[in-house]
Design a protein around this nucleic acid. Sequence first.
DNA 1: CCGGTTTTGTTCTCACGTTCACAAACTCCT
DNA 2: AGGAGTTTGTGAACGTGAGAACAAAACCGG
Lengths: 232, 232
Amino acid sequence: MTARSSTDASRVIPEATVARLPVYLRALTGLADNGIRTCSSEDLASAAGVNSAKLRKDLSYLGSYGTRGVGYDVDYLRYQIAREIGVTQDWPVVIVGIGNLGHALANYSGFRSRGFRVVALLDADPALVGRTVAGVAVQPFDELEAIVRDHDVAIGVIATPAVAAQSVADRMVATGITSILNFAPAVLAVPEGVDVRKVDLSIELQILAYHEQRKAGGAEQAAAVGADGGVA
Amino acid sequence: MTARSSTDASRVIPEATVARLPVYLRALTGLADNGIRTCSSEDLASAAGVNSAKLRKDLSYLGSYGTRGVGYDVDYLRYQIAREIGVTQDWPVVIVGIGNLGHALANYSGFRSRGFRVVALLDADPALVGRTVAGVAVQPFDELEAIVRDHDVAIGVIATPAVAAQSVADRMVATGITSILNFAPAVLAVPEGVDVRKVDLSIELQILAYHEQRKAGGAEQAAAVGADGGVA
DNA sequence: CCGGTTTTGTTCTCACGTTCACAAACTCCT
DNA sequence: AGGAGTTTGTGAACGTGAGAACAAAACCGG
């Protein structure tokens, strides 16, 4: 019995689309804040910074929530996307590693306002334990199991130094966490069924540096780059 | 028409490959730190968390830096990738917006150790100006032009609130910055020729939430996505 | 010097993602 | 009511990326 909710059940949403849905959600919120009640795919696409055809195709994976000749109802579509992503409910989150970055993450208002609730801040350093960051007390890392059990936490954030990341991930997985957002510059090995997403600040800069070098490269490169020109 | 050097430097490297090169670079550094002088594509691939065929194909875009039957010289390959990315030189970087996140970024050691030098921290808030963060004094945002000119800055980092992001980006572009790393949750419009990369914390969490909801929702529907299967 | 072994670099095939183009469906005006 | 004008949803073409398989090239032992 694959009878699911009111909408069609057998939809496999492409990963690339899933990654864009939060962008659409944010764009819709922006439109709603401006008092806009209806928008066309063109409007929403430009607000989200994508092509309108891509937007329509992405939305078509969720169902038919628009009206031909009219467009989309902003609030309705917003709710549908939020429901699809799963941010109509509140997700409890633990953050491990309360250094500079962990501090910033704990203070980041974008979490709370988007369906995520930081239920605990953990750190192995006794000097940090007991301090309060963003209204939440820092607790010893060993409290992980109890917190995950008590709050039914499924998502963990790793903001530790690279050397600690793998062991923190292992411990998280052991307690039942099945989704990890990793800010540590390390490759995590996790069992099947656990999702890991990685955010790496220096990698992003290096990608920019590559393109920057290409742009500026023509003149300075000792190696003659010929007529490529590189002006894209 | 294209006179090429021996290294065939002007080849077009796929974007997906460019995004992985920094990962390989980091993995190689890890191997070198462990005293390993030579490695096979299999070794490096598992350290980087990718498939070995993919790794070899990626490296083949740079040139033939391996030795069949032997593998890759760690230091040599490391240098070649660093040169390709452009991190053999030092890239001056300005960070705008010294809130919690800007603070964390300024303190992030991964920048300095990977070819990036934070030459200035800027903020529009007079209360922050004059304070010193990570050994660098916070200056008024209006100093942007002078700093970019004096230090020949090409890369800017935006860590401001969303509402300020677009105007900061416009100002950056006007001063000659051609690569922007944007941490603000906003879609930036920039002219052709300017690269923007976006890092959005809450979007990453929302993507995890989607998969988490799938896992919890339908048992048989387990969208097997994770499985980054790398061995550390 | 030569065959065997190892490992790279490359080719081929397939899957995925993007874009185009258009029929279907809705509104509005006469 | 009916036709003109919009805008969605989707089928088809196209381009890019991933993975398997293999030939080419290096080393090694005799």
